[in-house]
Amino acid sequence: MTDTIDVTTAPVDRPLRVDLAPRQMLWRRFRRHKAGMVALIVMTVLVLFAVFGPLLWQVDYALTDFNAIGESPSADHPLGTDSLGRDILIRLMIGGRVSLSVALISQILAIAFGTLLGLIAGYTNKHADTWIMRVIDVIMAIPDLLLLILLIPVLSGALESSWTPAWAVTLNDISLGTFGLVVGIFLITWTFVARLVRGQVLTLREMEFVESAVNIGVPRPLIMYRHLLPNLSTILVVAATLGVPRGVLLEAGISFLGLGVSPPLPSWGTMISDGLSVMRSEPHILLAPAIVLSITVLCLNLLGDAIRDAVDPRSST
């Protein structure tokens, strides 16, 4: 079955040949990948920019200045202002926090849940496997964006309804209203992790050390925990290298369509969409977030390539 994951040419169709080399070895191999190193440096700068930038550039991201609407870059506003006179630089930083953290948190959830279901599907009974795989097939039969478009209003509607548990509402408040977004992206991306993990488990369970553990009567949950899980770490790294850029793109995409974060909180997606309506008069409002988003995804993809090459050197050519 062809996978719908689209960010790279990762070996999703064939079982990943995991190389159980020691960590230093991986790092040495990674360092050899020049583009990966550049991407790592740029990505580090971007993360620092988003995380610590607002501490240095202390401007209110929601502060509107009616005397400075749609201004080009200047000393006061290094990247200019948007159509409400807000500083674009600070909005890029805060937008970066939003975009990156939504992607990261949703992928952590996706990996945790996907691993669990992948293990269950690959290493318990046939029925569980069938059911989980059918659910995954259905989710994957709908393009991720369409599914997300359908899910987000339901999730935000659920957050408004009376039966919502208090913790979800609190989490939504803490996350500045991005909780629904995180859950939505998680709900459609775990399937990919689960399939990768299941495939790997199917290979591992045939291996001697697992079979001998079964033979001496070690209970299944213990085998999963002690023998299967540790051997999944590499494939989970691969899943993360694919998942995070996908999360960034999904978040930006759904925010672009106006279903993501709520203004005035910026996201790179909403900033692009804001810029779209004024691109004839003030193209910088569109270009600034567009460039930063593209660089981020580019770096994440290059990093992913480098990491995959490091863990699976034979896949590189």
Binding site: A62, L63, T64, S83, L84, G258, P263, P264, S277
Partner: peptide, 14 residues
């Protein structure tokens, strides 16, 4: 969410 209303509301809030 509507271009005019969003802009105006954010201006009022500010």
């Amino acid at each position: 969410t509507n271009e005019v209303e969003e802009l105006q509301a954010q201006a009022i809030q500010a």
